[in-house]
Amino acid sequence: MDRSTAAPIRSLDEFAKRPPMKWSKHILGYLFLLPAVVIFFTFLWLPIGKGIVYSFYDIDFVKGDSFVGWANYTKIFKDAEVTVSAKNTLYYMMLGILIGFWVPILFAIAISEIRRFQGFVRVAAYLPFVVPLVVLYGLWKWLYDPVGPINAALEKLGFSQVLFLTDKAWSMISIVFMETWQSFGSAMLIYLAAIMSVPRDWYEAAEIDGAGVWKRIRHITLPAIKNQIILLFLLQLIATSQGFQTQFAMLDGGPNNSTLTYALLIQRYAFTRQDYGAASALGVLMFLVLGLLAVLQYRMSNKKEE
């Protein structure tokens, strides 16, 4: 209450005795950083560094590690499955773009135009993203079943039965379709936020100048979300290039290795063949390719902030 009496005036001697303010501040600042530094080092930098070291070793949990030079690398370069898996990964990334990438953009534009029930549609679109992945696997295995609902609908429309998961030609497409269904809502909300922040007057002005609907979308809406498009494009490439969990959970890389992605092969090397050295070598190779994409994405997201 009465502050004037609370703090007695300190003598100059007292100030002189105190350690310099700056130094004690620094100590506390570093103390705050210390746990994070230790944890980032032990659980990120250390394994990252060890990955490079392990790629030159034969890892044996019982007998101990032994140096093998480039043997792991020559082994993986000779393995035909590595080529197959790299091709599958590229195919998976391409399908992700072809089937999935444009969907959220299209729906964001459409939903921004809806006057009623917009909130409901947003929630509906986002909902599958909330469902646990393992539930999705169980659900879609049933949906894709030869006698499941999708095939029932196809039959009603006069198409023949499609073996979504067991047909080599369909397996990867089915996985991409399922993932698009699951995750387009989150991307859609990001686009939607950007579209909604476009001043309405711009459309008004364009319309008065005689721009048709398509021209308004082409010259106002799309440029307004250009940064998001590029950013999400790169993020999707980074994510799909590492994808393996869906392929593993739904089909374990089958049928006939048609959904064996590069990252899934890494898991196989490590946990099926117990060849941790070669698996680390595969990881190093992947890093060399993907590091480039990540840097690109960083430069994009920095540009965005300005």
Partner: peptide
């Protein structure tokens, strides 16, 4: 120090998933 933290964003987790596992095992 900031770079020490943020550079980890550039390294895709899948590339070090195996050494990560071996590291946790070593620990």
């Amino acid at each position: 120090i900031g770079y020490f933290f943020l550079l980890t964003l550039f390294i895709p987790p899948t590339t070090y998933i195996i050494p990560n596992f071996v590291n946790l095992r070593d620990l």
